[in-house]
Design a binder for these strands. Structure first.
Lengths: 234, 234
DNA sequence: CTCCAACGTCACGAAACCGTCATGAATCCG
DNA sequence: CGGATTCATGACGGTTTCGTGACGTTGGAG
């Protein structure tokens, strides 16, 4: 699995290390020395992954990540952030802003490659940035909106961020049961430590929101296994 | 998902904490106070995971990990290392040596369990789950569904978890008689103790559920021996 | 700063599921 | 033709799993 990776990093030394290691694994590498340069490069190319140093001259990693997430085209590019300290606050803030994983410096090449592979693999099955539609329920990842029909009238549904990601994942992977643990990995991320029952609560909130258009029955409970999204009842 | 875990840790206090928490989650725990003892124990047992304190009396964690990795039998046992908070150098070296994850002390039990689960899941063999079809009866492990045809219309059948596993096993091993004891081993698991007659009851419940599409005749009783799933009558 | 939306966790009740037993039917054997 | 063995079936607590409402926290918006 080879990919195009944008590295945003100001230290030339680390730049070289990353370029070498990523190249070894068959990835194409684009390097930007600061956030401005990175944004410029992003106008010309769409990488499959962004490796982002959290401490940058000028614009910080957080601001950069926000800018990237704000652009519809780039919204779904996974971001791995490189943090110097094991500062928990940075990590949390980074993950909130939309980073997919973090890695603390100094890091081993093995760990880095492992995380890159994990992130790419996780994103792989849901490449679609197109709108998904199941049983009249439309989800548009670009506009971050969900519409359902109620008596032939399109109605917007109100979802929280987590419910949206949960629904998005389920709609791009229908007709299949996912355990709570799998959903946590896919929707929350490997690095988040939450109770499995939290999934129940969000499923409930999601169902509750979908009730408006009667689409709550799309999400089915498979006792002892997990949840499934399916237009077919049973 | 329960597993056998080898804990290599010299502090009795932490030993106890780990033993308790791991036990709570259904894992079997083997404890070694130092690397020598751990290596000795490894000759007798193959755990599913090693929890390794990086600071040990005598042989260090790095040396121990290297020894484990050198042995072909133990090569693939995942290792999670416990490191003191600040020591970044150890972390890098550890991951290079082949540790699969690290966790910094002090750690919360929840984070520890989460990482253990992640590592075990990563190692778990992904069994190929294909749909099985016999005599028009379709079972799909992915969607966790069973469909039968009734007058050319596909009809979903409602099964409980145990009935589903039972049917799944029988459909993947048709045309063969299984004793109650064998079915208990295969479907319930070899560690569970339940009455053999319990199988009868679940066979009955399964048949009852299959009645909807007339597939109850698929499961046949072989007096004195057990049960068999077969499309051929007799 | 205050307010609010979103989230994670918990506790409680409901429902589903499971294992066991009692009883009666079916089958086998002398 | 009984008697004994094996199996089917229905019923009944006990347990597990899930749904649901409530609560405390947190980060961001106003």
């Amino acid at each position: 699995m080879s990919a195009t990776i944008l590295v945003v990093e100001d230290e030339p030394g680390i730049q070289e290390v990353l370029k070498f290691n990523l190249g070894q694994h068959g990835h194409d590498v684009i390097v930007a020395g600061d956030a401005e340069e990175a944004l410029t490069l992003l106008r010309g190319a769409l990488p499959d992954l962004i490796l982002l140093d959290w401490m940058l001259p000028g614009m910080t990693g957080i601001d950069f990540a926000r800018r990237v997430r704000a652009d519809a085209r780039q919204k779904n590019i996974p971001i791995i952030m490189l943090t110097a300290r094991s500062d928990e606050r940075d990590k949390v803030q980074g993950l909130d802003t939309g980073a997919d994983d973090y890695i603390t410096k100094p890091f081993s090449p093995r760990e880095l490659m492992s995380r890159i592979k994990a992130v790419l693999r996780r994103r792989a099955p849901q490449m679609t940035e197109d709108t998904v539609e199941i049983d009249g329920l439309k989800l548009d990842p670009l506009s971050h909106r969900v519409h359902g029909k109620i008596e032939d009238k399109s109605t917007a549904l109100d979802l929280g961020p987590t419910e949206f990601r949960l629904l998005h994942f389920l709609m791009t992977h229908p007709e299949r049961v996912y355990s709570r643990s799998q959903l946590l990995d896919q929707v929350w991320g490997d690095h988040v430590f939450v109770e499995e029952r939290t999934v129940d609560v969000h499923i409930r909130r999601l169902r509750s929101a979908l009730e408006v258009t009667g689409h709550d029955r799309l999400i089915q409970t498979v006792r002892g296994s997990g949840y499934r999204l399916s237009a077919i009842q049973g």
